[in-house]
Design a protein around this nucleic acid. Structure first.
Lengths: 233, 233
DNA sequence: CCGAGCAAAAAGTCAGACTTATATGTCACA
DNA sequence: TGTGACATATAAGTCTGACTTTTTGCTCGG
């Protein structure tokens, strides 16, 4: 579930990356490659590769005669799935979850509208199947089963939009949904209204009703915003 | 303007990255680190670092006894600014520009609505300043000056939204606007209606009128969609 | 025909030497 | 006292070569 392969490289990255995104090393901090290599008990080569990857995520900047400088958060590649995962696992998880939910509220309605135009017959079938799965698991504390179909549902909508930028957010949305179920208060069964909206959305897409699909999705995401006490625009 | 630092690492990356995103090495192709090192006349260490970065962008996958396999496009981290730049510089630039413009049409209206709630006095001032700059350069083929203020305007809106995910798209939007001005047909002065909309948007944000800001931005982005012959949702 | 095991191939890791850029301190000169 | 040129130390950047580990795919025996 978590992440990178299983080499030394990956292990070091999975330690140092979260440390940085968690603010453990504040912006402006200077790390030295040699020291890090010693600390993690790896060779300089491995450490350099890790630093290069962190640099490509704009988490750090490496300069001669200075060292590896930690960059301020507004420089980070916050769309990098790895960075998102690290941040969701860290302390500012709530803030992160809010940002992503607002992002969802902007993207998903438009994506649903496009999906109503572009979805293949197969995708329509998958959508109704997912919606039915959600209904089937909506009562009796079958949270995991519900979550599974919910994630799949939104992933299909984003993919069916035909826009690669939207499609690529499938993982992010899944991550948000999973986070809501697992960490936040969600002991009770899901809101029946939300379940109904998903069923209707599947119908709207199948019926090629773009406007209705967009409106229904807007209702869904507004529900998600309200759960986090974010006032609806 | 273009990119990475100036080490060997950066130079190799700026050659190999675009080759991959351009489809020069089709998905499934296998590259060998040693061969690449020979080809670029660098040591294996440098080549390995490059491969690791490409791997973190999900452009390739490196496996023992197999080599470096090029991944299909749907795996790529298409939100990575570097990947976006590479693709915009390549052959499927038109498709990329469309995807990004649709993304804009989803994000910017919501961002503008939030900006109307959250913008600081200083940001409001910047906004009107940018709008005035656009007006001043809207006639007489001052395209570069117009573009400059247009990019700044949208960047401020996204930043003022207070959402880091939106703010991080400032570079992307700037890239799209620049692309439109430089590569596509844009010899004539900008549409006066668009200029007016920007001025009104600056006013709406200053007046804290979120609904109006959102609506105006939707008009702006719909104009951008129409320019690319993308039917409005 | 099939499974066990063997050999080769390629990435992964390490250690050490050398190069290059650059921040900073020093000193002479104005 | 301030300023600019120069020297120096430092940490990243690069190269090389040897060794390890994993994995593929083939061979050989059942």
């Amino acid at each position: 579930m978590s992440t990178t392969g299983r080499g030394l490289h990956g292990r070091v990255l999975d330690t140092l990356g979260p440390e940085i995104t968690a603010g453990d090393h504040p912006p402006g901090s200077v790390l030295r490659t040699d020291e890090l290599a010693q600390r993690f008990d790896v060779s300089r080569s491995v450490m350099r590769e890790v630093v290069r990857v962190l640099e490509s995520m704009h988490l750090v900047e490496s300069r001669r005669r200075v060292g590896v400088t930690v960059l301020p958060a507004h420089e980070w590649n916050v769309y990098d799935p790895q960075v998102i995962r690290w941040r969701l696992a860290g302390a500012d998880r709530p803030r992160q979850l809010r940002s992503l939910t607002v992002l969802r509220s902007a993207i998903e309605p438009v994506a649903a509208g496009l999906a109503a135009r572009n979805a293949t017959a197969e995708q329509c079938a998958e959508l109704t199947e997912c919606a039915l799965g959600m209904v089937a698991h909506s009562r009796g504390h079958q949270l995991e089963g519900y979550l599974f179909h919910d994630m799949a549902f939104h992933r299909v909508v984003l993919a069916a939009s035909g826009n690669e930028m939207f499609a690529r957010l499938g993982d992010v949305v899944a991550e948000v949904l999973a986070g809501r179920t697992h960490h936040d208060v969600m002991f009770e069964d899901p809101d029946p209204a939300a379940v109904t909206l998903h069923v209707q959305l599947a119908e709207a897409v199948r019926a090629r009703d773009a406007a209705r699909a967009e409106r229904l999705t807007r209702e869904i995401t507004e529900g998600a915003l309200q759960e986090l006490d974010i006032l609806a625009p």
